[in-house]
């Protein structure tokens, strides 16, 4: 596996608070990694360190480069969307295309124009006249036309309605992603990106508390709906969490072999959000 991002023991202090507290991350080429964590867990700080936007302590290489010292070189191969509101309001659509086409050697203008043609964005409109969804489309059009090896998305669909959110990820997957591209994405709406991820990383209190490929997730984490008579036996196996809804219990286990759980009830792979609640919510109690 060609490792694009390599972080070991990243620490970032803001005064006495540690936004990152020994954060580890490894991302291979061609993966789509979801970085998921509660507010204030250090998601944005981790991304900023990766993008050379903030100083840090610890070991970090992105595409084999030092993000702070080799930032210009890094930005040739890395793209990011930091927030929906980030395009300046005075910028015109055609100006944005002119600008990126001139400063970015890997920008393919015809690709951006082809994508924009499928939207309702006027060719010379100013950003301030566009809706929030259109601004995100414009930003995505610019970013997707760049042949970048790593794309970093920080809450890219924040504040958008469900139609735009769906369209955003569909476009990303169909028109952008291939074996040579790698995507790192953070979001609150876990359910919406669950099906596109190849890997998931949970971050809490500045540390990675889980880092797993989606393929192997089901081998390590299992959700058990025990038959009533086996509930106590299931609890004795040390679940990460237990939830009750409509009188039904659902227990999530980590690294408990299938043959020990299967006799007790119905087994399934937990959803990312259930697992997140179990792993992070459990630790917070």
């Amino acid at each position: 596996m060609n490792e694009l991002v390599h972080a070991r023991g990243l620490v970032k202090r803001y005064g006495r608070k540690r936004a990152l507290d020994g954060f580890d991350l490894s991302i291979g080429e061609g993966r789509i990694v979801g970085l998921i964590g509660p507010n204030g867990a250090g998601k944005t700080t981790a991304l900023k360190a990766l993008l050379g936007l903030t100083a840090y302590e610890g070991e970090l290489q992105v595409l084999g480069l030092d993000p702070v010292r080799q930032r210009k070189q890094l930005m040739q191969d890395v793209c990011f969307i930091a927030d929906v509101a980030v395009l300046p309001r005075w910028l015109r659509v055609n100006q944005a295309l002119d600008y990126v086409a001139t400063v970015h050697p890997r920008f393919r203008r015809e690709r951006a124009e082809a994508f924009l043609a499928t939207t309702e964005i006027p060719a010379r409109a100013r950003v301030k006249t566009l809706s929030k969804g259109m601004i995100t489309q414009l930003h995505l059009a610019l970013i997707m036309a760049i042949d970048a090896r790593l794309l970093v998305l920080d809450e890219p669909t924040l504040g958008l309605d469900i139609l735009f959110r769906k369209a955003f990820y569909t476009t990303l997957l169909n028109d952008y992603f291939d074996d040579h591209r790698t995507i790192l994405v953070t979001t609150h709406q876990v359910e919406e990106i669950e099906y596109i991820l190849t890997d998931v990383v949970f971050i809490d209190h500045g540390r990675a508390v889980l880092a797993e490929a989606m393929d192997t997730l089901g081998e390590r984490y299992r959700q058990l709906i025990p038959r009533r008579e086996h509930l106590e036996a299931a609890r004795a196996l040390g679940p990460l969490s237990e939830e009750t809804s409509f009188g039904r219990h659902a227990l999530i286990f980590e690294d408990v072999p299938q043959e020990r759980l299967a006799p007790l009830g119905e087994l399934r792979t937990p959803s990312i959000s259930d697992l997140f609640v179990a792993k992070v919510g459990g630790a917070r109690k």
């Binding site: 210009k72 930005m75 969307i81 930091a82 395009l87 300046p88």
Partner: peptide, 18 residues
């Protein structure tokens, strides 16, 4: 100042310009 006020600095910084 304006690029920091409207947070567009993160867009400008996402491009390979020093």
């Amino acid at each position: 100042y304006s690029e920091r006020r409207d947070r567009s600095i993160l867009f400008w910084k996402s491009l390979p310009v020093t």
